[in-house]
Amino acid sequence: MKLVVDTHTHTYASGHAYSTLIENARLAKENGMKMFCTTDHAESMPGAPHFWFFSNQRVLPRFLEGVAVIRGVEANILNTQGEIDLPESSLKNLDWVIGSFHEPVFRPATKAEHTRALIAAIESGKVDALGHLGNPNFDFDFEAVIEKAAQHNVAIEINNTTLRGNSRVGSVERCHEIAQIAKAEGAFITSGSDAHFCADVGQLELVAELLDKVNMPSSQVITHSCKQFLDFLVLRGRGPIEEYSDLT
């Protein structure tokens, strides 16, 4: 599976990552990306920036090092009501919002509670994708959540860091099952490196391998081309980004 967009990357602003935005852009280009999303952690994570950091992303150039930059965030799902930790004033300045569970913010609970939180986050309309769902600490009803995501055009992330097996241990087989259900439900798939150091930006080889293994149609993979990703943002209600009108 050809992948040209990395939709999940962190800079040192996240508090536990180690590279700058320009370094990430440089490595995105070296690693074959045409576009990447900058998605630092929202403020409920220890060491993460204040919400003003995200509001001010409007000052970022649309291209760095010749690579298109999507302004985004990895927001925390806070509770079973599906609330996230970023106000509307910040969300309106962003192109892309991932909603994720993180142990320091949402204490792992029951399968039913995790399922309820994910469905509520989808229905809120505030998240464009659900991050690293393979984490066994946050078990959920795969079919119920993915069916709801398909209905609401919320993308399911396949996370390259997770697939390496040394983070969120126990996720790999779960990611294969999630991908198979997403294929059957017609849900959109997105690819994220979850890079916390610049060398990992655009490293999506394990995601591509998994998608090939389950015979995922490229039409469901929004990161297969820049145009597919931009069309997905419009489907999500975002306005067209004029600077990217020539990207294919």
Rank of each mutant, 00 (worst) to 15 (best):
L3S: 02
L3N: 00
V5H: 03
C37V: 04
D40Y: 02
H41G: 15
M45T: 15
M45S: 10
A48V: 11
A48W: 08
N56E: 11
N56Q: 15
G66A: 11
V69F: 01
V69K: 01
I77E: 03
T80E: 15
D85I: 10
K92Y: 04
W96V: 04
W96N: 07
W96I: 04
G99V: 00
G99H: 09
S100P: 11
H102M: 03
E103V: 14
R107Q: 14
E113G: 06
H114N: 15
L118D: 04
A120I: 12
I122A: 10
K126T: 09
V127S: 12
L130I: 08
N135I: 07
F138K: 04
D141K: 12
D141S: 14
Q151K: 14
I156F: 09
I158G: 12
N159D: 11
T161W: 01
N166V: 13
R174Q: 03
C175Y: 08
E177A: 15
Q180Y: 07
A182G: 15
A182F: 00
K183A: 07
A184V: 07
G186Y: 08
I189K: 02
A195F: 13
F197N: 12
C198Y: 01
A199L: 04
D200G: 10
Q203K: 01
L204M: 13
L210H: 01
L210G: 09
V214A: 14
M216S: 09
M216H: 12
V221M: 09
H224T: 11
K227C: 06
F229T: 00
L233I: 07
L235H: 11
R236F: 05
G237D: 13
G237I: 12
R238C: 14
P240Y: 05
D246V: 15
D246A: 10
